[in-house]
Design a protein around this nucleic acid. Sequence first.
DNA 1: CCGGCCGTTTGGTCAGACCATTTGCGTCGC
DNA 2: GCGACGCAAATGGTCTGACCAAACGGCCGG
Lengths: 239, 239
Amino acid sequence: MRAFEVVLAWVESRILGGELTVGDQLPAERELARQLDVSRAAVREAVRTLQAQGVLRSSVGAGGAGGTTVTSVPARALVRLLRLHVALANFPVDDVIEARIALERLSIRLACTHARASDLAAMRQAIAVMAQPGVDKARFNDADTALHVAIAEAAGNRLAADLTIAIRESMKVPLLVAFSYVADWDQLVARLSADHAELYAAIDEGDADRAETLVETHIRSAWARLQAALPAGGRHTGS
Amino acid sequence: MRAFEVVLAWVESRILGGELTVGDQLPAERELARQLDVSRAAVREAVRTLQAQGVLRSSVGAGGAGGTTVTSVPARALVRLLRLHVALANFPVDDVIEARIALERLSIRLACTHARASDLAAMRQAIAVMAQPGVDKARFNDADTALHVAIAEAAGNRLAADLTIAIRESMKVPLLVAFSYVADWDQLVARLSADHAELYAAIDEGDADRAETLVETHIRSAWARLQAALPAGGRHTGS
DNA sequence: CCGGCCGTTTGGTCAGACCATTTGCGTCGC
DNA sequence: GCGACGCAAATGGTCTGACCAAACGGCCGG
């Protein structure tokens, strides 16, 4: 077993065994290296691995604030992971769309019963940005992401929310590329904004069945329109 | 920007820009360090980060086989990530179950139309193992995982499959723990095996609607039985 | 022409050093 | 007595230089 894997196994087994939980501190790098009889470089490589998974967080300095602690921030890690694999075309965009629909149906269903006032406000905010006349494509893209993130956050299901966020974020660049090929941008904005208004109404009324249907139709039809606008040849960001 | 982040940004931007795709080789560590004017240690930390995301693969030795190449093996990376966060109780098991149902409904629906003979064989194999009288709990757990993985693989949707695999794998240990509390193990095996037979029949016949309903009922009722068997207090592996 | 040997390349690891940041305590000045 | 200042220690971040093991590829001898 390679040296950094020894460290990895040490930390992972303690996390899986419950001996290390969120907030706990790891021994200092030098100390851990001494304990496991590996070099400090090996410890650092293992720590980087776990940081990439959103499991550890390091900060410099002495005392309680300094050191490496266990956290649990999977959203960022998932976004980075998915974004890269989507770019590598391992996950064809069509497949991503299908998975996204499955997750967002769940998210929006839960959001219908769990949404709080602040969640609804975030949705309205995003919808308002997208409804501005002559809205910029990049701004629209960001706001649409924000809307779907807000819905996912409102669901109260962390895994579904984080996966939804990761998927939507990973599609941001490919979608922006697709936007650039759209001929009648204002018409697309109008159609999508109408969808968003309906979506919001369904959530606000707590009509889970209608919301589920709407979000599937919304995602599917939006993607169909974008696909129709795309040039024939596949791109590295597409499929 | 920290040194290893410089390397990270260099690699990521090239992947997102399509200049690096699966199969391509990175410059050698020493070379890349020289190019980016950082130490080799910084390069290695960045490489470890990307390896944790299933984006890079390193092997020693000269010539074509050696060096660091771009790959795309997200399944393992997702499994490790989810397993840790489930253990950290950031993802409550009940939330995981809901997300799993959403994804497996999609997977099994696709499997009904895409399953090949080899996929069906893998399912039968797993089901046969679980149907053995007096089957071991660990073996049953592995075979059940194999069954759901086989269904996911049969779907032909890589993202849905990888997410399904990651979720089922991340639940392996918590499920095994839950198994240990089950009073009438043989009865549970009988019930679950009956479910599996029905599931297989639906896939074999290509009845997507029935399969979707069955898999949801299967996962939900199995989890309900296990929850009923669990001791009252939450564990670090459950919630 | 073939097979084994050896140098080169590459990732894996280690040791030791220095830096920047942060904390916490002790000292100095008022 | 008390507060502000400052220094020592701890910690992650980085770099240098070295050596090891594996694997390829060409050279050389049979």
